[in-house]
Design a protein around this nucleic acid. Structure first.
Lengths: 354, 354
DNA sequence: AATCCCTGCTTTATCGATTTAGTATCACAA
DNA sequence: TTGTGATACTAAATCGATAAAGCAGGGATT
């Protein structure tokens, strides 16, 4: 009655219920966990416990519970940037399925910063998350290896680490890029510039570039190192501006741009807008990774779509499999999902340039 | 040495360090928390502890710590949809400042579902989050009131509950809407249709609508209930299509659309795109809330910009203030930030319709 | 010699829930 | 009368970290 104004009113605990009912905490715990019958607790007592729990508005302290049980029914998701629709959609796929199995999802962004990624992994471990899903920066494999050493359940998404026995869900970036170039070539492109994000080691970028290179060779298109421009992750806009100035300039005169992710493509649109560049008349544009706005940008953008929700679903399935089986000796799986080329207006290169 | 293949290898605990060094856990705890000197621990012993901790790769179990301390250095953020750039940006503002003060941010989306919001609030409380920042659905005030009753630190953002002594950070929606209408009127609009999200009780929507109504009256523009169209949150696209069909149809013939949030505006763009509608020639479009894509959509969209990062920063400041002061008797603050009209191309209504 | 202080630790209790290993009571059989 | 077995429950240990209170031993003080 007293402490009503000051401090937190201290939530009711198991002990409160036990005391006010004159029974042991053990009994209360058993009843509230639905193990009353199983433990031969009088059904009348059970009712009293349940009633009291409701009356006192009892909510178990999850820290205490997690500490005792060694699990928290929480899984962590670490992505580069949750505000990127790509990750946001994947996250949704994960969350939905996780929720159905009684798991909570906690999402954090690493900002493509390996230091921050390490901290986040550590943070989740310190808080006893039961498992992790990570879109790794691929720069701090030590931390990832430690997870593996420790048999900590985790799944990599979007980017993978090659040749390692690790769970992962990715898309076929090589094939997706190949099809993108096929499409550009069919529309008359002869000289395609590629924009990629600069941390060179990202497997997605690597695979998209190799797909791009293979396909340009197949189609006998122009090929030179200049055509591949690297854009730093944290200054996409400026980087793309410079890259486009160069690619569109007299020195190169590219007739198509293949943007290796949605941010790069968006920056191209922005550039086009601000510099009176016409797509696809002046130059074609194709994006790897489709986002909603490409449907109503000017022009609409042809893009390699990824099965976002499916990536999430497969990842959480793998993870739950690992968390729920006692034996950690399961073999890891590498799941590769197909992409889908969504054709819109941005690649119709007009006759003159063919 | 043994259990290397099966089960988790059990992280090292304080006790492990204490035992292997032949000292008490208390001592180890004190040293590792930097309170060694203060407690008169021999500096040599301190070194040994620190060395051993590093050697064994000790990481404190945050559940245990939180349980004992009654705080977790975690704050929860509940928003309608984290993939909406509006919330994503606000979240970033919060996270940055929180991090500087040693707090972690955990973000969850309520999907504008009051049931889910309740569960999330409960979840955060169960996990002993030290405070909450909530963009409430405004449908389950009970839960919010309970927070207040319990002196649980929290701040509302974006939407507020009127007349209650609760911390909140919002923008001046009324004024923002008024300025939007002023701009449309100056550009010759005579009949402005308003698209709003349907849970009618959202304070943002209510204030924007009232600003809209006041301004249309001031400018003596057309005014009729038909001009205000409600779109259900979970079917924006379809809803906007129907609403636009109506507003643009012969019956109404609106000459401008004021979309009360970025999603509605985006859906308008999509509609325009798919139906060969020209903005602003056929109709003007103005959005409340500015997002990146409005800079390179076709056309670029005039919008009421909100100080996103600032909303986040102010909110976390208020919250930390409350968390860090022992006395919970602080008076609550209602902070209202100004909006900013960003003029682009989508409202230049051509002569003919003036 | 008794007292006090200082340095450097340790002991014990605690946070809240769960698990393990009981115990008390009664009925009924041998 | 002793034993068997349900039935209905409890005591104590545990998870890991921390806080409060206490103690041992040596030197200085009176």
């Amino acid at each position: 009655m007293a402490a009503k104004k000051k401090g937190k009113p201290k939530k009711t605990s198991l002990a409160d219920i036990a005391n006010s009912l004159g029974v042991s905490r053990t009994l209360v715990s058993m009843v509230l966990n639905g193990r009353g019958d199983e433990n031969g607790i009088n059904s009348d007592t059970q009712k009293r416990v349940l009633a009291k729990a409701k009356e006192l508005n009892y909510k178990p302290n999850q820290l205490a519970r997690g500490l005792r049980l060694g699990r928290t029914n929480t899984i962590g998701l670490i992505v580069a940037d949750i505000s990127n629709p790509f990750y946001a959609t994947v996250a949704r796929g994960i969350e939905d399925l996780a929720g159905q199995h009684g798991f909570r999802l906690m999402v954090c962004s690493s900002d493509e910063d390996s230091q921050k990624e390490s901290e986040l992994i550590q943070m989740f471990r310190d808080r006893q998350a039961d498992g992790l899903i990570i879109s790794t920066t691929q720069q701090n494999n030590d931390e990832i290896m430690a997870l593996r050493e420790d048999n900590y359940p985790f799944v990599l998404i979007d980017r993978h680490l090659e040749g390692l026995d690790i769970n992962s869900v990715t898309v076929d970036n090589h094939l997706g890029a190949t099809q993108a170039v096929d499409h550009l070539a069919q529309n008359g492109a002869k000289k395609i510039g590629l924009l990629k994000i600069s941390p060179t080691h990202l497997s997605t970028m690597r695979d998209r570039v190799s797909g791009f290179l293979d396909a340009t060779k197949t189609h006998m298109l122009a090929s030179s190192p200049d055509l591949i421009q690297e854009i730093p992750f944290n200054r996409v806009k400026e980087g793309v501006y410079e890259a486009l100035e160069y690619l569109l300039g007299d020195e190169v005169k590219a007739d198509a741009i293949f943007a290796a992710n949605n941010n790069l493509a968006a920056a191209c649109l922005e550039y086009a807008r601000e510099n009176g560049l016409n797509i696809p008349q002046d130059i074609a544009l194709l994006s790897f990774d489709d986002v909603r706005m490409f449907k109503f940008s000017y022009p609409t953008i042809t893009a390699v779509a990824q099965p976002l929700q499916e990536i999430g679903r497969q990842a959480i399935k793998l993870l739950l499999d690992e968390i729920l089986t006692k034996e950690p000796v399961v073999t890891k799986k590498q799941i590769v999902l197909p992409t889908d080329l969504v054709i819109r207006e941005s690649c119709r290169i007009p006759e003159k340039s063919i």
